[in-house]
Design a binder for these strands. Structure first.
Length: 303
DNA sequence: CATGGTCAAGTGGCA
DNA sequence: TGCCACTTGACCATG
């Protein structure tokens, strides 16, 4: 195993008001407009640097950037933000810092990003959101490869997986090349949806999108493969020279012995050793306690 | 100032 | 039929 990372929020810094997730409701955007969106984006960008520095101070070189850095960035023209030039400078600086310190940055746009949708409006919204993430990566001067992945799910079947996958692949072609080159697909956490094997057979074999293996999700949708087989297959889809990423989380319902919680929900901390079956991977820990869970894990297993 | 309901977005599973 | 879960809580009105 190489890098251990965490997602979007630093609890320690968050308590001090340092975060990249300043957001607002639509009503607030309507009331306050671009100047306020600009102010939030600038504060978010500045805090990203602080979080990256904190990470380096704590030996963490893998971080997922949240989707709210540009509040409403998928619906507004961010180049029209009053502070746009300054925001770009700050993001350029964050990117330089990441490169200099060998930090791997990724994103995970929300479950509303459905390239397989049968509704054109949903697809258009998805394209806008994915392109916003890609533009953010451009401003950070990150690679146009899945080293800096923009990761999504297929996420829905519309009653016919084959047709949905076909639409997914058609709509994928509508993305900019730089966005396409960063995109990865993750296995879903429902039996009815897409396992690693589904993604491999129906998408990777056709258009070569790398597969992110989510170990927790696999428990709910194995596609007939055990963990070791599925992880190996997923890892085989990554380009040479780019370390595959796997996601790791544990069940909140089991941790808290509470059957009212869905088994899929993520626990605050993780307790089991992360088995990577000798694959050379970076592991994104998806735990509600964020970097605290990562630090606890390293302490527990002395790594 | 703390709390709790609500918030942009899509889908599917379940009580 | 309406909540929960997913990428993630944070916003905002109210007391």
């Amino acid at each position: 195993m190489n890098n251990l990372g965490y997602a979007c929020i630093n609890m320690t810094l968050g308590k001090k008001g340092i975060l990249t997730g300043r957001a607002m409701r639509k009503s607030t955007l309507d009331a306050k407009g671009l100047p306020y969106a600009s102010q939030l984006a600038l504060e978010n960008a500045k805090d990203l640097k602080t979080i990256l520095e904190w990470n380096v101070d704590h030996g963490i070189y893998f971080f997922r950037i949240g989707s709210d850095l540009f509040p409403w960035g998928n619906k507004i023209d961010i180049t029209k933000l009053p502070d746009y030039n300054e925001i770009v400078k700050v993001l350029n600086d964050c990117g330089d810092y990441a490169r200099a310190n060998n930090i791997r940055l990724t994103t995970h746009p929300g479950p509303f990003n459905l390239l397989a949708s049968d509704k054109e409006e949903v697809v258009l919204n998805t394209i806008l959101d994915l392109e916003m993430h890609s533009t953010l990566f451009d401003l950070l001067k990150l690679d146009e490869t899945p080293f800096n992945k923009i990761n999504i799910h297929v996420g829905a079947t519309y009653g016919n997986k084959e047709v949905a996958i076909y639409r997914w692949k058609q709509n994928f072609k509508r993305l900019s090349l730089s966005c396409q080159k960063r995109l990865t697909l993750e296995n879903d956490d429902k039996e009815s949806m897409y396992s690693v094997k589904d993604l491999y057979d129906s998408v990777y074999q056709d258009i070569g999108i790398p597969i992110v293996f989510d170990i927790h999700h696999h428990n709910f949708n194995t596609g007939g493969m055990d963990h070791s087989e599925a992880m190996k297959l997923a890892c085989s889809t990554w380009p040479k020279g780019i370390r595959p990423i796997v996601h790791y989380s544990e069940s909140k319902a089991l941790h808290e012995n509470n059957n009212k919680i869905k088994l899929q929900a993520h626990s605050d901390y993780i307790s089991d050793f992360i088995q990577t079956h000798d694959n050379d991977v970076d592991v994104m820990i998806e735990a509600k306690a964020k970097e605290l869970a990562l630090l606890e894990y390293r302490k527990k297993y002395n790594i």
